[in-house]
Amino acid sequence: MEDITITLTTKPSASLRASVFSAHPPSTSRNLSDVLVVFLNGLVLSRRAWLPAISHLLSSFSDNNQHPPTILTYDRYGQGDSDHDPTDDPNTIPYSHDAHDIVSDLHQLLTQFTSSSPHLPNLESTRLVFVCNSIGCPLARLYAHAHADQTQISAYLFLDSMIANTDFVSIFPDPDDTGFDPGSLPKGVSPQELRYTRSQFRKFFHPTVPNPEHFDRRKLAEMLPFSDSPSLPLIAAPGDEKPSEKAPLLTVVGHDWDEFAEQCEKGTMAVPKQVINTFMNPTWSRYNDGLLRLVHTPGNSNTVKVASGCGHFIQKDDPEFVAREIKHLLDNL
């Protein structure tokens, strides 16, 4: 992987940092020379968190005497090694640019990157594969619809997607609500633990919580109110007489319930495992089930895969698993 700096023509006073693997395709017709694998970060981990998975992926191609596609992972403005967004209004910080702005920046980045690549066609003819973690998954969904007429997103790998339509706090019952029934709680969960859990999730995950990117998440639930709609755009498929359309490939991966609950209990939040397993994990599981319905084709898995032994940051906890899932998608393109 090569570290590069990219300055968007739309924002010339700041730069993005990226890591790139530029494929050198063979002179054959059946290969991945027109494929660009794009990694979309969550809020916490930068592009460098993907590098172990990418290393495993490249090794798997080498071991099988195959030629890998072009790979791009980057830090958004204000994240990792990238500069802050030069259009952020100092008077509104920490709430500045939103998901629509990030999607627009991503499109400009991909347009410039593909046009300057010696091995890729222009963006409209490049087959994109999005590998996403956390908030990167809703960003991929928003991008797909914003630029459906200009891109071909052939495959998606959603690694523990952020639950985009919640404030996180309301996942847990409010013990101070007038209609709350303490007797409805399962054994091992107390009103005091619920109250504490709600305060911790409000402190760390509520959409109003600032982040170093100045990414304003307050309206994300309005942008994506449902996990199962709108469906991911169809893509062009070559036909005998004229191109037809088909659904993209989609793999949805969820975290290991016990590992995630363990990390919540032993980490900074110190939220009891029983509370997470009673309320958060079932809610997240239903959300992931909805994501599967974003595509309608027999070629896609109808079950959510579980990354055994992994918490929310699957690329960090098991990069080899992530590499295998990417390779599986690429083999099916």
Rank of each mutant, 00 (worst) to 15 (best):
Q263N: 06
T251A: 10
L250K: 09
I276A: 01
P248V: 06
D240N: 11
Q274Y: 03
L234D: 12
F226I: 01
H255N: 12
G239E: 07
A261W: 01
I276W: 00
F279R: 00
S285A: 15
P210I: 02
N288F: 07
K273E: 08
G267S: 04
P210W: 00
Q263D: 07
S285I: 06
R217P: 01
D289G: 12
S285G: 08
K242S: 14
S229D: 08
L234Y: 13
P238N: 08
E222L: 13
P243G: 05
D289T: 14
E213Q: 05
P248Y: 00
D289V: 10
R217S: 01
L220Q: 12
E222C: 07
I276K: 07
E259D: 09
P243S: 04
W284S: 14
D256F: 05
N288E: 13
K242G: 06
L234H: 11
P233W: 08
L249V: 04
R286I: 09
P248C: 02
P230C: 05
P230K: 09
Y287E: 07
S229K: 10
L224C: 03
V253Y: 03
H255A: 14
G239Q: 03
A261F: 01
N211W: 02
N277M: 14
P238M: 10
P248E: 00
H255Y: 11
G239F: 04
K219F: 10
A270Q: 15
T268Y: 10
L250F: 06
G254L: 01
N281T: 15
N277H: 10
V209C: 06
P282N: 05
H255R: 15
R218Y: 00
K266L: 13
P243M: 05
W284Y: 13
F260Q: 12
P248D: 02
P233D: 09
H214I: 02
E213I: 02
K219R: 15
F215T: 02
W284Q: 13
A236H: 13
I235G: 09
P230I: 04
E213C: 00
E213S: 01
I276T: 03
P225H: 09
R218F: 03
T278D: 08
T278N: 06
A247I: 07
V271Q: 11
R218W: 02
M223I: 11
P248L: 03
H255D: 12
P238T: 09
D256H: 07
P282T: 04
A237M: 11
